[in-house]
Design a protein around this nucleic acid. Structure first.
Lengths: 108, 108
DNA sequence: TAACCGATATCGGTTAATGATATCGCAAAC
DNA sequence: GTTTGCGATATCATTAACCGATATCGGTTA
């Protein structure tokens, strides 16, 4: 029996996904399956049914732009952050800092 | 026309609520309406339909314990963190630190 | 004992995550 | 040039969660 990650952390993680994606897309072009792997390294199994609609949404909202590229015979949709996305990321950073700092600040 | 907070931050906030609540309940006894005000100070209007079920859930899961108290003629359900809740909070802290630090670390 | 009121509880409607499945499109094989 | 393989992407029905409007609770006071 596999112990699922704490639901609290799962919730946190889901709420954090868009920001996490924007961050990586600000570093280098990313694609769906890669993001999924990256999230797994953090211990969270996020469904493709979540990843892809999220990417589409971020593109539709103008935060990401898409370039299709062929890699070893497969089509990949790479996403890069836009200027608008960068602004949103910066704004989110500040707010997250404010929200999280307090909670993280001290142990028991 | 009131500009709603960015949906990305809203998502983050919703995912963060349980942890935020646990944190405050680790400092002092809290109650629903107070939490709602506290969250508003951060710029987010969270519905009672979210707050109260969340508190019930945290209690049911053993993270909070409840004491009903009468204040100026009104019944209030105060919640305090349990030992189990403290453990969950500490665990969450570590994980959040790991997840957030990277994203916050640098500007553009 | 009736009316008040802050706080809490609840309900139907709506939106979002899920993960299993189907599809896409290029390339290598024959 | 047609077929097959495959990683990546798209989609769909189901399930769960937030929403906010509304109802209810239960001491207190007059």
């Amino acid at each position: 029996m596999i112990m699922k990650p704490d639901s609290m952390l799962k919730d946190f993680f889901l709420g954090f996904i868009k920001i996490h994606i924007l961050y990586h897309a600000s570093k280098e072009p990313i694609y769906g399956a890669e993001i999924q792997k990256e999230l797994r390294r953090h211990g969270y199994q996020i469904s493709p049914g979540t990843i892809y609609p999220t990417l589409h949404r971020l593109k539709k909202d103008g935060y990401l732009e898409q370039q299709s590229r062929v890699v070893s015979g497969k089509v990949r949709n790479y996403y890069t952050i836009t200027e608008r996305g960068r602004d949103a990321l910066d704004k989110s950073r500040n707010k997250i800092q404010e929200l999280v700092t307090e909670v993280l600040e001290d142990g028991r």
